[in-house]
Design a protein around this nucleic acid. Structure first.
Lengths: 151, 151
DNA sequence: CTTACTGCAAAGGGTTTGCAACGTA
DNA sequence: TACGTTGCAAACCCTTTGCAGTAAG
């Protein structure tokens, strides 16, 4: 949240809700809570993270509702998934232009950067039909760097 | 196997066996079979793929033995893991120099290429301590291209 | 002969599904 | 009101673990 503007969070949250509504899905309290959660999140969240966060607002929420909505939002393209070393994680897809991320190995926060290797590449076999690519840099963000080096 | 030389397979297989032996591990028939399998494989194998292949030679082999050995070989650095869309996969780590891969979305064969984005990058925040990176290109290899486009 | 490895069976964790009650549109 | 959504419970993978028998070194 630290470097997010309050309006950005609100508008991201509204975007997610609108996207669900546009698909004809009902806007339940749990889904609003989920949208807010991902709008506020700076890094990746595991299903358990999501469950724990949502339980603070909706103590009765169940794991299967979390999974159902994570899957629906992923299929819709609102969320993106990634397997980090300790399992499947989710975050709100960056809606703007194409870019890649630095991912902190400790806090799993992400930092975007603009360099895309596909624009600079030479040497891809011409007969390979490229569909997509994945480029991530792992390491420690400024906040975690000191902690990590002292371990 | 198509573009693998027979000697390469044999030597890769021997490398894996030697690596296990050097660590003091016993060379059982199942492990020899596993080493041969990964030496011959061109793409990624799931635990189930490995289990199915090994069962052809050793009908009595069990899933836990497969998992145990996959884990041991991964921890040793002989195998590398990746999460593709349909789960965890393994392949023999390329022992030579640093490079990246094209991965076929259909047959999951891999094609190495030399371009590494880290050597060409600008714009990484200076205060981010880089540990590792991941760069993969997904698409269709020449053999799968025609099949894929007709679907 | 010693100790690691295996297979079996059972447990474990994460994720999905069937169903009746509920709440949104 | 009607139908999508939820919580519960149970089922379902995939993966790991405990144990006694087996086999490599």
């Amino acid at each position: 949240m630290a470097n997010h503007h309050k309006q950005d969070i609100e508008s991201t949250m509204q975007d997610i809700v609108k996207a669900m509504s546009a698909k004809g899905w009902r806007i339940t309290d749990q889904r609003k809570s989920l949208a807010t959660l991902f709008a506020e999140a700076e890094g990746f969240l595991s299903p358990k993270d999501v469950y724990d966060s949502m339980r603070q607002q909706y103590p009765g929420v169940s794991f299967d509702t979390v999974y159902r909505n994570l899957r629906l939002l992923s299929e819709m393209g609102v969320l993106e998934q990634i397997y980090l070393n300790d399992g499947l994680k989710f975050r709100a897809r960056c809606g703007s232009h194409h870019h890649h991320h630095l991912i902190c190995l400790q806090c799993e926060k992400t930092v975007p950067f603009e360099f895309c290797p596909m624009l600079h590449m030479a040497g891809v076999p011409a007969d390979f039909q490229v569909v997509s690519h994945r480029f991530e840099i792992f390491g420690y963000c400024p906040s975690c760097e000191s902690t990590a080096s002292s371990e």
